[in-house]
């Protein structure tokens, strides 16, 4: 039985660790936003630390179990206060320090002043698609109101035709942004809660009706600098999300409309 357990815990280690080593893609898909690299660093650091803990803990189990078969009698041992204090303090420091390492990127996303001269885009969730409200050349987004919404006529945001600011606005079902430019998306919802998930941008934000949450980001492309715009996916189904994929790089393919299933 002891042998079985040793094998079992060895398998746990292999099964949890090897797929990550073999397939770096499993760790994290490539990111294209500036802050994304910082988040990745945090995740990878955590992955190292937790990976080591997982391995050490299971090796400890294997070792003690195996050694127990070599003894005739257990040792009478009630504890060791110095050890208790040591490992309490050390894990405390480790966990809190790790956490603090992550605070700069959080501050960059949420606490610092939003970049000046950024393009502001409203992101509006609805059942079951996403809409992107661009300001147009005047840089201003027209007012929206629920009582003007009419999905049948295409006014899904409730824009006001009489409002000059809305005349040049662009409403899209996909997000296309220029690279190397500061963008701020303001995320909200017109019905229930949704979650905006952009793995490649490392953006995740609940869309809450009555609340607009600003998230700044900036896209940088490493190899293909010649591109001016990047299409960040289409409104394909119940919610919108996208992932960087080299094949999706098209010069300015703004609205690659894909058949959106009717709201269910």
């Amino acid at each position: 039985m002891a042998l079985l357990f040793v094998l079992l815990f060895a398998a746990v280690i292999l099964w949890s660790v090897v797929p990550i080593i073999l397939d770096p893609n499993t760790i994290l898909p490539e990111t294209i936003s500036v802050h994304g690299h910082l988040i990745d660093k945090q995740v990878v650091d955590t992955l190292w630390i937790t990976g080591v803990i997982l391995i050490v803990a299971h090796l400890g189990l294997m070792y003690t179990i195996w050694k127990s078969t070599k003894r005739d009698k257990a040792e009478y041992l009630e504890g060791n206060n110095r050890l208790e204090i040591t490992w309490t303090v050390l894990t405390g420091i480790l966990f809190v320090a790790l956490n603090l390492l992550g605070q700069p990127v959080w501050a960059k996303m949420h606490l610092e002043a939003k970049p000046k001269d950024a393009i502001h885009i409203d992101v509006i969730a609805k059942q079951f698609s996403w809409m992107f409200h661009y300001p147009g050349p005047d840089g201003k987004r027209g007012a929206r109101a629920a009582n003007r919404i009419n999905d049948a006529t295409g006014n899904s945001l409730g824009l006001d035709e009489a409002d000059e600011e809305s005349w040049d606005d662009v409403v899209s079902t996909s997000l296309v942004v220029p690279v190397d430019t500061d963008i701020v998306v303001h995320i909200t919802s017109r019905d229930v809660l949704h979650a905006l998930a952009c793995p490649a941008l490392r953006i995740k934000q609940d869309a809450v009706p009555g609340l607009s949450v600003p998230i700044p980001f900036r896209v940088v492309l490493n190899q293909q600098d010649w591109q001016k715009f990047i299409s960040l996916g289409g409104s394909e189904a119940t919610e919108w999300l996208m992932k960087y994929d080299a094949e999706h790089f098209q010069k300015k393919d703004a609205t690659k409309e894909e058949s959106a299933p009717a709201a269910k």
Binding site: T46, T50, G102, W106, R202
Partner: peptide, 18 residues
């Protein structure tokens, strides 16, 4: 142990973004 370690990722507001 295995499950708790997941919490170390999720408990960090920064990593939880992802």
């Amino acid at each position: 142990v295995t499950g708790g370690l997941g919490g170390i990722f999720l408990g960090q507001n920064a990593a939880d973004v992802y």
